[in-house]
Each structure stands twice: as structure tokens, then as C-alpha cells.
Design a protein around this nucleic acid. Structure first.
Lengths: 221, 221
DNA sequence: GACGCAGCGTGACTTCGTCACAGACATCCG
DNA sequence: CGGATGTCTGTGACGAAGTCACGCTGCGTC
């Protein structure tokens, strides 16, 4: 069953639930579904819609000619694709890829409405600006991480963060693209962690045995 | 001799020269000078001022604990420190360092005025949003560059770009921090370029002998 | 069971960052 | 002029990480 635009906004985007804007959103925005694996926006495209994610997650990443990838960040429910907003407002081409990781439900706002409300609504303005600003800082932090920290530290971090019930159910390939590394390198590091009795390895799964041991790896090189 | 705020804005920030805003700027903004090497903003600081650069250049970079640096971008006259704007608007801490490379003259706008004009002036809003959006895209492009291209390609690019009259008057150390690499590595690559007769090396200077040879290195690798 | 495929393990090699140290050059000063 | 000091550069040795290639294993399908 689908929630209406105003229900979604009221629940997940409380900053936008002020009365004049909420009515506008209800009248002019639509809700859409994107299947898992669907493209939200491609590199070099002009953007025409701003999606406010209601359910599911979107992965935003850059990709090299040879196919190597680096995940920039993920968009969670209650957030928006600020790169889209950014290229709407700066009139630049979208500099990355955005793909639905799971099925995504989103409220989409047309370019013209984005602009209109930037001028008319203080709530909208604050919402969009805040998102862009926080993502900008986040991406810069990610860059520091990628450039300055060693892979074993980042891997330990990642495993602790991505674990559900002490398990990370992802392939080495997926882990590598999230970390901006290569599959073979991740496999080697995971093997080393296994030999140090910090984790156990199965097909598409890493089970954490010693969280505090991983914790110790997070800081140092 | 110093130009007045309104003269600077009229010349370098034409987008802001519309009449009501220009008068406000003239009344409420100040011009400042920062000596070469002076800090504009430090990592983790809250920002209170937005500088609009009128003369000189500002280098914005991130730094590791061990002192390695990566230059994110440079602010030229007519531009502004959008990271400052971004953390004003998103209420996040400044995620990098900004240092004057040469003496810098700038019009500074107080936080309160930045906010007020975001609401009141369409010209101001468009100016700030456009700057943030373009920088965001630029930083992501930089990240792709750092992660995916080999150093010799980036070095060739850099030399062609930074050359004035076929000469780059910088130390290997400076080149390395701009490229996000290490001095010794840059020295080695430059030596290789010299042995291939593409450049000549002197103390604090690289002279380009074969631009098209460098050009050929830009893409591949 | 044979086959195909996705996921993983591993060795050989290259690129790059780190560390250490030595030589070359500039500037300042006695 | 000659030495002292500091900056800049060259280079070797090493480790960390990316690339390439190949083979193995578990698991589904026919």
C-alpha cells in the first residue's frame, strides 16, 4: 500500500511539513518507485527531477574508465539526492552515478518547483541548503579517508559499521567498490584478518569474531 | 590604493551588482587584507565570515595527521570561499584548511548578513548556490582524478596547466602537495620526464621542452 | 553427473608512498 | 673570500596497494 505525498513528508521530512509548503508538495509532487539496480542519475546528465527518498537506499559513486568504482555516500530515507539539487542550482552536469540499491520509493519534485520554492519557502531553502552543505563536508571527509588512511584500518571500520548481528553479508567485490579498492586486495586483507582470528569467512559473508580487535585496527596505519 | 566595496563588487562580482543588494553590501561589508601564508579558515572551526576574494588566491586543502596534503581547489578573484558558505548554511564544521597563497584582498560578509540576503535577495541566492554547486562538482571530479589516474598523467596535466611561458616555477614539494603525492615520488617522475627530453629541471623550476609529448601522457596510464 | 558461473585464493609484477641520507645550491654573514 | 646553515633535489631500499592472470570451490541447472 502506498502512502500519500503528504504522509511521507510529514513522517520523514518534518522540516518540510509547514503548512503552505506541504500543500504545494501534495499538489505538485509525485511519488515514484525505482526497482533495485535502477539508475537514478548518470554521469554527465542534466537533471530534471529532485528525488526525496521515502524508502530504500541509493548509492552515489564515481567510476573510472576501466570500471573501478568509489562509493561517495548513500542516500537514506528522509534524505535527498543533493547532487541533483546541486547541479540544478549550479547548472552543471551531474558528476557521478546514482543507483538504487534496493527498491526505492521517492517523492519527486520538478526542476521548476525546486527553483520556485527556493525563492518562496524558507523551510524548503533551509532543507536543501542544509543537505547540500552536509554532503559537501561528508564527501571531503571521504576524500581524506581514501587518501590518508590505510586499507586495513578502513576495512575494519567498514566491517564494524556494516555488520548486522555480527555479520556482513556482502561479497569481497562489493566491499572493494565501497572502499574504493580492488577485489583481490580486499580478499587478501580479509584473509589476514581471518588468520588473526578476528573474523571468519564464508561465501558472501564475513562473521566478526573479535569486535574489539577490529576496533584496535581502526585508528592506526 | 584600495578600491571601495562597491567598486570591487561592480567589477568582479557582476552578479551581485543589482541595485538594492549593492547598496547593502556597501553599507554592511568590509574589505580586509590577509598576508601571504595567512590562514583564512582552519579545519573544525565554525565560520563567522564569508570572504569574496577580490585579489590574490586562496588554496583550500585537506591534511593528514602526518602532514601530507591534498589541494582541493584554489579560489580566484571573483570567487568566494564556498566551503565557508556551505558550513554557514549547513551548520557543520569547516572540513579543510584555507590559506592565502599570495596577499589576498577580500570583501567579508558577516554570517547574519549571509543568511538575511539568502532570504531577501534572489541575486545573492543564485550567486552563493551556483558557487557551492560548481565547487561540489569540481571536488568530485578531483576525487576521480586522484583515485583513478596515474601520477605521470596527472603530473603532465599539471605542468601544462601551471606553466607560464613554458615554465613552472614551483618546488617539487609544492607540486607534490598539489597533486596529493609525495615529494620523492614527484622528483622521480620529473627525472624520468627529463630523461625523455620532455622537460628540463632547475632548482624550483621546470621548463617544458616538448608540450605535445606531455600532452600525449595526459590521457594514458 | 557435466556444465557454467559467481565468488574466492594466490602469485607475480607495477605503481606509489615512506624513510633515510647525501649532494647541490642559495643566502647570509664574518 | 669562505664557511655555516637551510632549502631543494637525487636516489636506494622497503612496504603498501593496485593489476593481471589463473585456478579452485561451492552451487545451481539441465
Amino acid at each position: 500500500m502506498d502512502a500519500s505525498t503528504s504522509e511521507i513528508v510529514a513522517e520523514l521530512f518534518p522540516a518540510l511539513a509547514a503548512s503552505p509548503l506541504l500543500a504545494e508538495l501534495d499538489a505538485r509532487a509525485q511519488t515514484v518507485r525505482v526497482p533495485a539496480g535502477g539508475f537514478i542519475c548518470m554521469e554527465g546528465e542534466a537533471c530534471e527531477m529532485l528525488p526525496l527518498v521515502a524508502a530504500g537506499t541509493v548509492r552515489v559513486f564515481v567510476q573510472s574508465d576501466e570500471g573501478r568504482e568509489v562509493t561517495l555516500y548513500r542516500i537514506q530515507p528522509g534524505e535527498s539526492c543533493v547532487l541533483t539539487a546541486s547541479c540544478l542550482l549550479g547548472e552543471t552536469a551531474f558528476p557521478a552515478f546514482a543507483v538504487a540499491e534496493t527498491e526505492v520509493r521517492a517523492v519527486v519534485v520538478r526542476l521548476a518547483d525546486v527553483q520556485t520554492w527556493m525563492h518562496a519557502s524558507e523551510a524548503w531553502r533551509g532543507f536543501v541548503l542544509g543537505l547540500i552543505a552536509r554532503r559537501f563536508a561528508e564527501v571531503i571527509g571521504r576524500m581524506e579517508d581514501l587518501m590518508f588512511r590505510r586499507l586495513d584500518a578502513r576495512l575494519a571500520d567498514y566491517l564494524l559499521d556494516a555488520a548486522v548481528d555480527g555479520r556482513v553479508t556482502r561479497t569481497h567485490e562489493q566491499i572493494a567498490t565501497d572502499l574504493g579498492s580492488a577485489r583481490a586486495v580486499v580478499s587478501r586483507h580479509l584473509k589476514a584478518l581471518e588468520q588473526a582470528d578476528l573474523v571468519a569467512l564464508d561465501r558472501s559473508r564475513v562473521t566478526i569474531h573479535d569486535p574489539s580487535g577490529l576496533q584496535a585496527l581502526r585508528r592506526r596505519g
